Simulated scan of single mutants.
Amino acid sequence: MGRLLKSLVATTRTGTIATTDLCVAQISRLLDQDPGDWDRRTHRMGVLADYMADSRLPRSWAAREPRNASALVLSAWTQVAWARAQGRPHDTADATENCLLAAELAPEDPTPWVVLLGVARMQRWEQPQVFGVWNEVLARDRWNREAYLSMLGYLTPEEAGSRIQVLEFVDALCARMPANAPCAATELTAQVLQYHAVLDRGGFEALVARNHWSQAMAAQALDRVASTWAQPGFLRHARARADLNLLAYALMAADRRRDARPVFEALGGTITAWPWQAGGDPLTEFDQAQRRAGAGS
């Protein structure tokens, strides 16, 4: 994946038809790998969409191959990624149309519905519509990580739901989810989002935000995963390193340095921007936390 992204940087700069064809061939080859592994397909699509949010290539590919489900989904996802990066709603009519057509062309593929869920979230669709899209994802990929995190975001008070809905959503998931499912980080993500909401209030609440991690629900969420996620081979999904970053961050926020050490060791220096960016530069925040974990008791 990393080699492809570097190659895309080199080839997209020229903007010629030949280099566009080369990029499309490289992307298509990657997305055709591991057929039926929806976790990795969703991951690859998401990484490419974020990386190419400012590029015209995905739309050009979809225009040239209007019956190619991968091209349609990638084009739609880059539109969603661009709008999210801009921090404002965006005209998503094309994205919606592309997702629905891709769903017809590849009825077993959950990624058109995953992207449509992102569209629904951005456009604040009514909950019955959103849950309809959500059910389409689950029918194809029961534990799709991107879909669970997208629904979690949609159900927060900051978007279209409430704290109660978040709790009900997480409780229902934890009651039946395998411990190492791709969406295993949903509960901990909910706790980190709540922690960030407290920090964002500022003032005295922000000063005592660490108390969040001593509350029963937050402490239990950490307890459930602190001893297992860092074990070799326990998490096998494509975004496992992102989930380990989340765990390391939460353990350090809770001042559980001893528990954080093996997580940092398992990461081996692999850093994701979120959630470290909440405190500043992700690399700086990660390095400081890692040093504190190594020095603490």
Rank of each mutant, 00 (worst) to 15 (best):
residue 108 E to N: 06
residue 212 H to Q: 08
residue 84 R to D: 15
residue 288 Q to M: 15
residue 76 A to E: 09
residue 65 E to Y: 10
residue 55 S to Q: 14
residue 104 E to G: 01
residue 183 C to H: 04
residue 33 Q to V: 00
residue 183 C to E: 07
residue 160 A to S: 13
residue 50 D to W: 10
residue 174 C to P: 00
residue 141 D to I: 05
residue 2 G to A: 08
residue 218 A to Y: 12
residue 17 I to A: 12
residue 146 E to R: 02
residue 33 Q to C: 09
residue 166 V to E: 10
residue 51 Y to L: 03
residue 62 A to S: 10
residue 38 W to D: 03
residue 161 G to M: 04
residue 294 G to E: 13
residue 222 L to G: 04
residue 82 W to N: 00
residue 208 V to W: 15
residue 92 T to A: 08
residue 121 R to V: 04
residue 8 L to N: 06
residue 1 M to L: 12
residue 100 L to A: 07
residue 138 L to W: 01
residue 15 G to Q: 15
residue 83 A to Y: 09
residue 68 N to K: 08
residue 86 Q to Y: 09
residue 35 P to Q: 11
residue 102 A to E: 02
residue 238 A to M: 07
residue 252 M to K: 09
residue 5 L to G: 00
residue 22 L to E: 01
residue 83 A to E: 08
residue 27 I to A: 08
residue 136 E to Q: 13
residue 220 Q to D: 15
residue 268 G to A: 11
residue 63 A to H: 03
residue 94 D to L: 13
residue 93 A to K: 12
residue 150 S to T: 15
residue 118 G to V: 01
residue 8 L to C: 03
residue 170 V to I: 14
residue 212 H to A: 08
residue 142 R to P: 02
residue 190 A to C: 13
residue 267 L to M: 14
residue 66 P to E: 00
residue 204 F to R: 14
residue 224 R to M: 15
residue 118 G to T: 00
residue 217 M to T: 09
residue 128 P to I: 07
residue 195 Y to F: 15
residue 100 L to C: 06
residue 184 A to K: 00
residue 87 G to W: 10
residue 248 A to Q: 07
residue 297 S to L: 08
residue 259 D to W: 07
residue 27 I to Y: 03
residue 259 D to L: 12
residue 192 V to P: 08
residue 71 A to C: 02
residue 24 V to L: 06
residue 195 Y to E: 07
residue 116 L to R: 01
residue 246 L to R: 13
residue 101 L to G: 02
residue 286 F to E: 00
residue 199 L to D: 14
residue 135 N to P: 00
residue 53 A to K: 03
residue 258 R to Q: 12
residue 250 A to L: 14
residue 136 E to G: 00
residue 190 A to M: 05
residue 203 G to E: 13
residue 153 G to R: 07
residue 251 L to I: 06
residue 254 A to G: 15
residue 73 V to R: 04
residue 134 W to Q: 03
residue 249 Y to I: 04
residue 22 L to G: 00
residue 41 R to S: 06
residue 92 T to D: 06
residue 126 E to R: 13
residue 256 R to I: 10
residue 147 A to I: 01
residue 217 M to H: 11
residue 161 G to L: 04
residue 259 D to M: 09
residue 188 L to C: 14
residue 116 L to S: 01
residue 96 T to R: 15
residue 184 A to H: 10
residue 133 V to Q: 11
residue 63 A to D: 09
residue 133 V to M: 12
residue 21 D to N: 09
residue 76 A to Y: 10
residue 262 P to N: 12
residue 70 S to W: 01
residue 25 A to W: 02
residue 116 L to Q: 02
residue 143 W to G: 02
residue 184 A to T: 11
residue 50 D to R: 10
residue 188 L to E: 12
residue 256 R to P: 10
residue 97 E to C: 02
residue 65 E to S: 09
residue 72 L to Q: 03
residue 82 W to D: 05
residue 217 M to W: 04
residue 21 D to H: 02
residue 241 R to P: 03
residue 157 P to F: 13
residue 151 M to W: 00
